[in-house]
Amino acid sequence: MGQLQFYVVLCYAIPILVILFPIGLSFSYIFKITGLDQWSNRINNYLGYFWYRSFFLLTGRTLHFEQGDWDPNGNNRFLICNHTNAMEVPLIVALPYLSQSKDVKLSYLGGDIIQRYKIIPLMMHKTIVEAVIYSERKPNFRNFKTDVLKVLKTRSIFLYPEGERTFTEEIKPFQTGVMKIAYKFNVDLDVFVVSGMMGYSDLKEYSHLKKSKTVYFHFCGSIKAKDYSTFESYLAAAETLMKDKKKEIEAIEKSAVTV
Results as ranks from 00 to 15, higher is better:
Y134V: 12
D202I: 00
K247D: 09
L209I: 15
R77N: 14
S207R: 10
F158C: 14
Y228Q: 00
K172N: 01
V191Y: 10
Y183R: 01
F185I: 02
I30T: 14
D190N: 11
E170V: 11
L25R: 04
F55V: 05
Y206H: 10
F50A: 06
K184F: 05
Y12F: 12
G68W: 02
K126V: 05
K145P: 02
P15A: 02
Y117L: 05
K102F: 12
S207H: 13
F144T: 05
L95K: 02
M123I: 14
G48E: 11
T127V: 09
R53D: 10
M1S: 13
P173S: 04
S135F: 06
S233E: 13
S201E: 05
I19R: 15
D244V: 07
L109R: 06
A86Q: 15
F185K: 13
M87C: 06
E239S: 04
W39I: 10
M87R: 05
L58F: 15
E232S: 05
V257W: 04
Q175S: 10
R53W: 07
I16L: 08
I249C: 01
A94T: 04
L235D: 00
I30C: 09
F78L: 05
Q67N: 11
V148H: 14
E170N: 05
Y183G: 01
M123G: 00
A86D: 10
T230K: 10
R77H: 15
A238L: 11
G2N: 14
H83C: 01
K118L: 06
I252G: 02
R53M: 14
E130P: 15
F31H: 03
I120H: 08
V129C: 07
L63I: 05
K224T: 09
P161T: 04
Y160I: 09
K145Y: 04
T230L: 14
L235R: 12
Y134G: 06
E239H: 09
S40Y: 00
P90T: 12
I171N: 00
F27Q: 00
Q175T: 07
D147N: 10
A236M: 09
K180T: 00
D202V: 15
G2P: 08
K150M: 04
H64Y: 06
V257I: 12
G163Y: 09
V129L: 03
E253G: 14
W51G: 00
E250D: 12
V148Y: 11
K211N: 06
T176Y: 01
Y160Q: 11
V257L: 02
Y108M: 10
F141N: 06
S99Y: 02
K246L: 08
D188H: 15
S195A: 09
E248V: 15
K138Y: 15
P173L: 02
T166H: 08
G35W: 13
E170H: 05
S229M: 14
G2T: 09
Y52T: 11
R155V: 03
S222F: 04
T146F: 12
S222C: 03
V215T: 11
M197H: 07
F158I: 11
V259L: 13
W70D: 03
S101I: 07
L152Q: 05
S135Q: 11
D147F: 05
D147A: 14
L189W: 01
T59I: 01
E130H: 14
N143C: 08
H64N: 14
I128G: 02
L36W: 15
D112P: 03
N85Q: 13
Y234P: 03
F78T: 07
A182F: 00
C220V: 09
G199N: 06
M242P: 10
I92G: 00
E248S: 09
V89E: 08
M87P: 06
G110V: 06
